[in-house]
Simulated scan of single mutants.
Amino acid sequence: MSEAQPPTGTTGPSDRYGKARRPATGGSGRGRKVAIGVALAAAVGAVGWYTAVQQQASPVEYEDIGFDVVDAEHVDASFQVHMPPGTRAVCTVDALSPSYAQVGTLDVEVGPADTRTSAYEVTVGTSEEATTATVVGCDVVDD
C-alpha cells in the first residue's frame, strides 16, 4: 500500500498551532524545584533551631487563671507558673484599665517549688479601677 500524502495547499499539524516553544536556557525546571526545596528545608531547620534555643534560654511558662477587682485601688490576679523544680523566677503582673492602659504593676518572685507547676495569687495596687489583671512575662532569676 502506498502512504497517503496530505493534499497540497494545507498545512501540516506541526504548524497548525504556531511554532513550538523552545525550552528556557536558564536550566531545567527540576533544578529550580530542588533549589526551592533545599531553601525551604533550611528555613524550617532554622526556625526549629531558634525555637529550641528560645525554650532553653527561658524555661519558664506562665498561664493566667483569673482576676478579681477588689475595689478602685486593688485587683487580685491568679496565675500558674510552669518551670523546672528548684527554679526561681520573677513574674510581672499588670493591671489594666478599660482602654488597656496600665494602671498598676507588680513584680512577683516565684519559686523555687518542688513541682513543675505552682499556683500564685497576688494583689496589685492600682491608680484607678482596673478591669483586668494579666501576667506579661516571667524571667529566670540567676543565683
Results as ranks from 00 to 15, higher is better:
Pro7Gly: 10
Arg30Thr: 14
Cys138Ser: 12
Ser118Ala: 06
Ser127Ala: 06
Arg116Asp: 00
Phe79Ile: 09
Pro23Phe: 00
Ile65Arg: 14
Ile65Ser: 09
Thr123His: 03
Gly104Met: 05
Val108Tyr: 14
Gly104Gln: 03
Thr117Glu: 00
Gln56Ser: 08
Pro85Gln: 00
Tyr50Cys: 08
Pro23Ala: 01
Ala130Asn: 04
Ala20Tyr: 07
Gly45Trp: 04
Ala41Gln: 01
Ala42Gly: 07
Pro13Thr: 04
Gly45Ser: 11
Glu63Cys: 05
Asp94Thr: 06
Glu121Pro: 00
Val135Leu: 13
Arg88Ala: 08
Thr51Glu: 13
Pro112Met: 12
Asp107Arg: 14
Ala72Ile: 01
Val81Cys: 11
Gly27Thr: 07
Ala133Asp: 04
Asp142Cys: 05
Ser2Asp: 15
Gln55Asn: 13
Val110Trp: 11
Asp15Trp: 10
Lys33Pro: 04
Lys33His: 13
Pro7Met: 09
Gly45Cys: 13
Asp15Phe: 13
Glu73Ala: 08
Pro84Ile: 00
Thr105Ile: 11
Thr92Gly: 00
Trp49Pro: 03
Ala101Ser: 14
Tyr100Ala: 15
Glu63Ala: 13
Pro112Gly: 09
Thr25Asp: 08
Val60Gly: 10
Gln56Asn: 07
Ala133Ser: 08
Met1Asn: 11
Thr115Tyr: 00
Arg21Thr: 05
Thr132Gly: 09
Ala20Pro: 12
Asp142Val: 12
Thr132Ala: 07
Val81Ala: 11
Ala35Gly: 06
Asp139Val: 15
Phe79Ser: 10
Gly45Phe: 09
Val90Met: 07
Ser28Gly: 12
Ala57Phe: 02
Gln55Val: 07
Ser97Phe: 02
Gly18Val: 14
Val141Thr: 15
Thr115Glu: 02
Tyr120Leu: 02
Ala35Ile: 10
Ser78Gly: 09
Ala77Glu: 12
Val140Trp: 07
Pro98Gly: 06
Ile65Asp: 14
Val103Tyr: 03
Val90Thr: 12
Gly31Leu: 13
Gln55Ser: 03
Gln5Lys: 14
Pro98Asn: 10
Val47Thr: 15
Gly48Leu: 15
Val53Cys: 00
Gln80Tyr: 10
Asp143Arg: 11
Val124Thr: 05
Asp76Lys: 05
Ser99Cys: 04
His82Trp: 09
Asp143Gln: 12
Gly37Met: 01
Asp64Phe: 02
Pro23Ser: 00
Ala24Asp: 04
Asp142Lys: 12
Pro23Thr: 02
Val108Ser: 14
Gln80Ser: 15
Glu61Leu: 11
Arg30Pro: 02
Val38Glu: 00
Ala89Ser: 15
Val135Lys: 06
Asp107Asn: 14
Thr134Leu: 06
Val44Asn: 06
Pro85Leu: 01
Ala35Arg: 12
Cys138Glu: 08
Arg88Trp: 01
Ala46Val: 13
Glu109Ser: 15
Asp15Tyr: 12
Val60Thr: 12
Glu63Asp: 14
Ala46Cys: 11
Gln5Leu: 12
Asp139Asn: 15
Met83Gly: 01
Ala20Ile: 03
Asp94Val: 09
Tyr17Gln: 09
His82Ala: 10
Gly27Ser: 04
